[in-house]
Structure formats: structure tokens, C-alpha cells
Simulated scan of single mutants.
Amino acid sequence: MRGRGGWGYPLFERSRELGGGELSAPRLRSDTPEKAGLDPGELRHLVREVHDLTTGQRPWAAGAVVAAGRGPVIAVAEAAGWAVRYAAYDPKTDRGAELPPRARVPMTVDTPFDLASLTKLFTAVAAVQQIERGTLGIDARVGAYLPEFRAAAEHGITVRQLLTHTSGLRPELPLYDCPDDATRLAMLRAEPPVGVPGTYTYSDLNLLLLQHVLERITGRRLDALVHDGITRPLGMTSTRFGPCPGAAATEDQRRPWAKADRGMLRGEVHDENAWALGGVAGHAGLFSTARDLAVFCRTLLAGGSYGPARILGPDFVELLLTPPGLGFAVDQPWFMGELAGRGAAGHTGFTGTSLVLDPATDTYLVLLANTVHPRRRPPDNRPRARAATRLARAVRGS
């Protein structure tokens, strides 16, 4: 079940070895649903429903890519709709101004997407890598690493609280309205918790502070940590911080519905704060493809290894995914559907991206869409939940 630009994967070669004599973890390959131990009928429904999401005058998304599989097999890799469909958004008609057909860009399975908050998962993995190495304490206070972040230091915010969104920090700050980097940094340093520490409040600021911690203890930028510690060893060559020419378009970003006046965005980070911070941020900024994210999911399901590479040990993958999850959301039916309930982990992104991996069934689902093209609207997570439910039923019906 492949859409435009389908992939091929090398078969697992058992002669390849990890350090210490361990056999390589199997690499992904494309094959039939039956070879993956999945019901082909449910996956046909999944593919049809993803195509339906991109049709009509007011589609859920202009375009989408879905990848799903079990074990080392990708059983679905399908593209639908358009990577670029609209020239602009018309607030008078509340519709997108459609490009002529010849000027539109069709979606393919290799189209990169602005991952938005899926970036948080990579920041979380980078943090757990430092925990594994002993350079970062999970229950250490942020002030021990960043004493100049006086508000976080005074309130005893810990690394664990940043990773579990229990620091009490507000969801975001208007860094995009600051005149320069120094003002933005001063605002972050002075920001105190507004909620009760220990109580869950989802916040981009948690991952921004964690980015500063990681950069302080390693002496390296976050983009280098992600590249050298995650994407390069896993062969995720399409995953990087922007700009990313050829990415699916996102929003005609203008006030008052957006927080900045930037016009139609394609290949530049959508999140206004990440843009203000130069495109590299702990909470947003990465671009990637469905194939690369399937590799990321497979690596975690395999205990941190993929092919000859190991990015985390199994105990630290377990730490990452054990409820409530470090960076990852765990067992959330609102976007995981019937996959939720036995330890499924994943995340969503504002631009329309999501992924779910389920250790209980060894399955993974990547659904990437440009739902904010041509402009943002209240999120509708029902299509994500339906897609995940199709995969759960494909396991049960196999």
C-alpha cells in the first residue's frame, strides 16, 4: 500500500553487529500487511479515510502522509492531497485562494513536514541521553545548571518537571514580540511558575528551558545534539531544523489570527517563538518525513537500537516511555484512539503532525498533515484517533 514516491528498505542483515557482539536491530522494510501481522482490510480503510481527509472545499488538511506498520515491516506508506494547494487565505470569504492546478504541488510520501511540537520528543531523547551518560540528573534542579535563570532556581524547578510538564510554567511567552535576543533571554530567565509545581500544565517553556540546560552542560547547540546523537546514527537524513525547501506549506501567517505577519509559509518554521529564536528551539523547529519518523518509532520500540546504531539503552527507553512519559504523552485516547490503554506513547504537533508507538503490539503510526494550510483553525483530533483505532483493529483482526 504505497502512494506517490513509495519507499524501499534494505532487508535485515543478521551478520551486522553492534559493539559487544550484539546482533543488529532489524531495519525497516516495506512489505504486505500480512507480513506485518496486520489485517489488510482495516489498513485499506485507513488509507481510504486519510484520502478522504484531504478532499472537499474545507478539508481537514490540504494534504497528508500516513505510515503504519508492525515490527520491522512498514505495511502502509501513502500520500494524499497537496503539499501546496493555496496561494493565500482570504479572510473575507474564510477560504483559501486556490492555486491553479498546474501550480499546486502534490503530496508524496517523501514530502517533509514542519513537525511543530513533535520536536519536543527529540529534545526529550537528547535529555535522556545525557541522563544515561550521567551528565544530567533527572531530579536535579534547573538552577544547578542555569543559576542565572533566577525564577526557575528560586522555585526549585527540576529537570523531571520540565520533561513531564509539571513545572507550573505557563504555556508560552510572547518572545516573538521582543525586539532582540537579549530581551527574549531576559524574559525567560525571569519567568516564574504561575501554577502549582507538580500539577500538569502543558508548556512550550519547559522544553525551552531544557534546551538551555542541554546546551549549557554539553557546550553544544541543540541542533548539533539532535543531529549527532539521534538523526545521523539512525540515518534520518531528512530530519533537520529548518529552513527546509520543499516542505509542505503551512499557514498564511498574518495578524489577527496569527502572532506575526509573515505571509504564506513553506520551509520556514511555523511556530512564532521558534521563528523568533532563529528556527532552533526545544519545543518546535524540526522538519521531517514519515519515513524518518517511522525509523524513530521503530528505534524506540526496539529498545533504542536500529541497525548497527544505538541511541539509548533499553532501560532508558523504558524511563522515557513509562507513564506519565518524559516528553512523550502516554495512553491518550483523544489522539491515540484504541491504541491507548496499555502504554502507547506519542505526541501531536500544531501544524497537523502526530505519531504513536505501541510497545504492547509493536506497532507504529505516523500521520503527517498540513492542517493549518491556508490558516489555523481549532484543532480536530478525531481523524488522528480514528487512524490509530484502525491500526489497533488491524492488530486484533490479523
Rank of each mutant, 00 (worst) to 15 (best):
V366E: 02
R14K: 09
G282E: 02
S117W: 05
W275P: 00
L146G: 11
G263T: 02
K259S: 13
D362Y: 03
G282W: 03
P383D: 10
P333Y: 08
L175A: 09
G325C: 09
P333T: 03
M107T: 11
Q129C: 10
E132V: 11
G8M: 11
E34T: 14
V109P: 02
A258R: 08
P193K: 01
G341W: 12
R375F: 08
I230Y: 00
V366N: 02
W257H: 12
L146E: 07
T239Y: 11
A126H: 04
P59L: 02
D177N: 04
R240Q: 10
G337W: 08
I74E: 06
F241Y: 12
R2I: 07
R310F: 01
P333W: 09
G303A: 07
A274V: 10
S354D: 04
R95L: 14
T158S: 13
R384W: 09
T111R: 09
D114Q: 01
R262G: 01
E338I: 04
Q211N: 11
D110N: 13
R220K: 10
V73C: 00
V194A: 14
Y176H: 14
I138K: 05
D181Q: 15
G3Y: 00
Y176D: 01
A247F: 11
L277N: 08
Q161G: 11
L23C: 01
I131Y: 05
A67V: 15
P308F: 00
T183I: 07
P26L: 09
M107A: 05
E42Y: 08
T237A: 15
A294G: 05
S117K: 00
V47K: 06
L18D: 02
L339C: 07
A182G: 10
R85C: 05
G137H: 02
T353Q: 03
G219D: 10
V50H: 01
H212C: 10
M107D: 04
G143V: 08
R14L: 09
G20W: 10
A88Q: 14
T135M: 02
L339W: 01
P91A: 12
K120T: 03
R29K: 08
A290E: 10
F316D: 13
Y306S: 05
H212G: 01
T93A: 13
P383G: 08
A36P: 15
G37D: 02
R4Q: 04
T361E: 13
S15V: 05
